[in-house]
Nucleic acid binder design. Structure first.
Lengths: 142, 142
DNA sequence: TATTGTTATACTCTATAACTATA
DNA sequence: TATAGTTATAGAGTATAACAATA
């Protein structure tokens, strides 16, 4: 259920393109996760622990409850994709990091994530620059 | 957990803009659903029954199992946002449609979906046309 | 007393398999 | 026999509340 578009009654061409683009991204992300035996939530967390992170820090970044992260990490750890290690500076805290198997899973995911690999290759260097500028402006970034 | 980005080790400016754009869209969609007491899946289905639809047709479009749709629709129907009606042409089939309350919920959702409303307003007419063309090209559409 | 993280619980999403009613 | 949809079931995501350990 990665499809989130069609929220507007009568979309114009720019809106339709935007919805279709986001849908294609989301569908490809979900397919890449499934192809590698990961749920969406597992793929999200696995992709964010390239460097060791605290659990609560992750929960805040993902906008979900800490207890949620605990459960997903427990499943990832049971499959030896991540590991919890004590933080010597604060014994309440635990740092989450990927195992070598976790690194391999992320590499396989990236390989499956066709949209991220291919979408920009259809544009010239100049067009990529134009697209980036337009997206940033639409986002309201400086 | 709408955040799906950061799949590439060293993203360039165009990739970063693309990821950030999709993230902003997904986060806004999720926030709009939550603000109106809807789950993501409920919002997806509710948004797709502007006209009566068959259940299996919806499942195929959403890329999920028919039994999944049955359950989500059961919850939407319990809240009087949609209704199932018999199809006179084929008594096995049931057409799903929104109630007036469902229409109101969709209107409230659209109002909350800030990103879809605001992103394009930051671009001129000409820029919107450029963006649509670039997104279509990146998608590989004709 | 405040903070980090876990556990217990309940509800939702999701798919598979078995089923009912109709074609 | 095939199709539309449901029911039963099990695993995963999600948040709230209560808790343990540490600061």
């Amino acid at each position: 259920m990665a499809l989130t578009s069609v929220p507007v009654a009568t979309p114009g061409p720019a809106e339709s393109a935007m919805f279709d683009f986001v849908d294609a991204y989301n569908q490809s992300f979900e397919a890449a996760a499934e192809a590698n035996g990961l749920s969406l939530a597992q793929a999200c967390i696995l992709g964010r622990v390239a460097d060791p992170r605290g659990m609560g820090e992750l929960a805040e970044e993902l906008g979900c409850d800490a207890s949620n992260v605990t459960q997903i990490v427990t499943r990832l750890e049971a499959r030896s994709l991540v590991e919890r290690r004590a933080d010597p500076a604060d014994r309440r805290s635990r740092r989450l990091s990927r195992t070598p198997q976790g690194d391999a899973a992320v590499a396989a995911f990236d390989e499956s994530f066709a949209f991220a690999r291919e979408a920009l290759t259809r544009l010239s260097e100049e067009e990529q620059g134009q697209l980036a500028a337009l997206l940033r402006k639409a986002l309201g970034d400086a």
